[in-house]
């Protein structure tokens, strides 16, 4: 037991120091941060504004009104922002495979998956969280979302679980690079799929696609199913409401799976260059 505690302490000490170093590093280039500070909130605020125009001009999307859509969009964006803060490296795993970026990690007496997962803290992610909070708070207020204790815990667990689903999903798609040495296209497809399935209700898509995003690639649990449960929306959902809040469980399962695939991939790692 004391060995385990010592080991936890060791990993915590390295992880927190790596995080601190990453932040210090970014603060060396403040102008870079400022440019993102303008671009990212604009991109997502325009996105939700477009949704409002669509719903106002035409009709509710698969029965979803604008307040409900804003709630879903904001909920999805919260885990997106958090993922960009803690797990942006999962977007670049393929580069690391191709350029021999795991050599140094393999030379350290630490688990490689841990080093990869906790190697970086990205300040720019905080910029993504700004529109996320604005849109989510607007959605909550427009829908009259009731901040009971249960609902608050629910939102928190969904956001954390969804962050795990997102980063595990990116890790899994990029792990292809261990075998193919190239995964940029996978990353691009994954990114599109992620945006389209988490910012809009799944019920606007054909049944087969919904089924895939529920049982095969469970991205539906990032914002769609939890929103149906939290707002008590019944139209067009494929799942019973009790399972809709399983986001943390699915997040942990996907995280476990991504670790297994990562470790398998690492055995095929060829450490390019000399």
């Amino acid at each position: 037991m004391s060995d385990f505690l010592n080991s936890c302490k060791h990993y915590a000490s390295v992880g927190s120091f790596q995080g601190r170093m990453a932040l210090q590093r970014q603060l060396e280039y403040p102008l870079f941060l400022v440019s993102w500070l303008i671009m990212i909130p604009l991109k997502y605020l325009i996105g939700v504004w477009m949704l409002k125009i669509l719903v106002d001009q035409f009709q509710p999307l698969a029965g979803w009104t604008f307040p409900q859509l804003a709630f879903l969009y904001g909920l999805g964006m919260l885990s997106h922002g958090l993922m960009v803060v803690v797990s942006i490296q999962s977007w670049f795993l393929d580069h690391m495979v191709i350029q021999g970026g795991f050599d140094r990690m393999l030379l350290r007496p630490l688990n490689v998956f841990f080093q990869f997962t906790f190697m970086y803290l990205n300040l720019i992610g905080c910029v993504d969280l700004i529109p996320a909070v604005i849109i989510f708070v607007t959605g909550c207020s427009l829908t009259g979302f009731d901040w009971t204790f249960g609902n608050s815990v629910g939102v928190l667990s969904v956001v954390l679980g969804a962050t795990l689903i997102r980063s595990s999903f990116y890790t899994l798609t990029a792990c292809v690079a261990f075998w193919t040495k190239r995964a940029t296209h996978m990353r691009a497809i994954g990114h599109d799929l992620m945006e389209r399935s988490t910012l809009y209700p799944l019920s606007i898509y054909p049944k087969a696609f919904q089924w895939i995003l529920t049982f095969v690639i469970p991205l539906g649990f990032i914002s769609f199913y939890p929103s149906t449960a939290l707002l008590n929306i019944n139209h067009g959902t494929a799942l019973p409401l009790e399972i809709a809040m399983w986001t943390p469980i699915i997040g942990i399962a996907m995280f476990g799976l991504s670790q297994i695939v990562f470790n398998r991939g690492l055995r095929a790692y060829e450490s390019a260059g000399s």
């Binding site: 390295v14 120091f17 170093m21 060396e28 050599d103 140094r104 630490l110």
Partner: peptide
């Protein structure tokens, strides 16, 4: 041809990281 030092930070920070790793 490949440094293990942290490019953007003062050299001492890389030593501190080694202290924690080992």
């Amino acid at each position: 041809q490949r440094t293990q030092l942290n490019w953007d930070l003062r050299l001492g920070e890389s030593f501190e990281l080694q202290r924690r790793i080992y």
